[in-house]
């Protein structure tokens, strides 16, 4: 059961992950983008954190909607609309007290929304390359955190087809995608709080 305390803890964990890894994400984005991904995510989750009292008190779908709206309005860049769309779509698809199956289903739906927003697919060296394996792990009973981390690493040899890194062509090869990394960090933060995710709860 994701109660108010857990929602609060989830927001704190996600914000801590983004704030704590802002410089790492920025460095990744400096290598193949424009060097703002860490700052963007930090700004967005700081705004979410500032509203934690209000957000955590809401039912899960409403809380997700509030998070999504805040991300859309505060993050900017490509990641703002994408993470915002992800949260807003989850808000629509998740019941107030979701099972692991609900979560897997909702994530698939949200991933489709992100693809539509980004006109993108897996394999293009973006956050999708982490989100899809995470959905698959949820479905198959595998560990989503391990899946996310492995998938983020696996973006290194890819050539970017979407995002700013795509302007680099072959020069994007050999670097981890910053959005893939931030997705993996968020997945780990969420799993750390929910704990039970990987064993059905």
């Amino acid at each position: 059961m994701i109660d108010e305390a857990k929602k609060r803890a989830l927001i704190e964990a996600m914000a801590a992950a983004m704030i704590g890894h802002a410089e790492e994400l920025t460095a990744l984005d400096q290598a193949i983008g424009d060097g703002d991904h860490g700052l963007n995510m930090k700004r967005g989750f700081e705004a979410v954190l500032a509203d934690n009292d209000v957000i955590a008190a809401k039912p899960l779908p409403d809380a997700l909607k509030a998070i999504g709206t805040t991300l859309v309005m505060k993050v900017g860049g490509a990641s703002g609309p994408l993470y915002g769309t992800l949260a807003l779509a989850l808000a629509k698809e998740l019941p107030a007290d979701p099972s692991r199956d609900d979560l897997a289903r909702a994530l698939r739906g949200a991933i489709a929304a992100v693809k539509a927003r980004g006109k993108s697919e897996s394999g293009q060296k973006t956050m999708l390359d982490v989100l899809e394996p995470v959905a698959a792990a949820l479905e198959s009973g595998a560990d989503p955190v391990a899946a996310a981390n492995g998938a983020a690493e696996a973006t290194i040899p890819l050539k970017a087809i979407r995002g700013r890194a795509a302007f680099l062509g072959d020069r994007s090869i050999g670097h981890m995608d910053p959005g893939a990394r931030s997705s993996a960090l968020l997945v780990a933060a969420i799993a750390g709080v929910l704990g039970g995710i990987s064993d059905g709860g």
Partner: peptide
């Protein structure tokens, strides 16, 4: 105007 080198937000 967005943040430096970051697109503005829809609002």
């Amino acid at each position: 105007p967005g943040q430096v080198f970051t697109s503005p937000t829809p609002d």
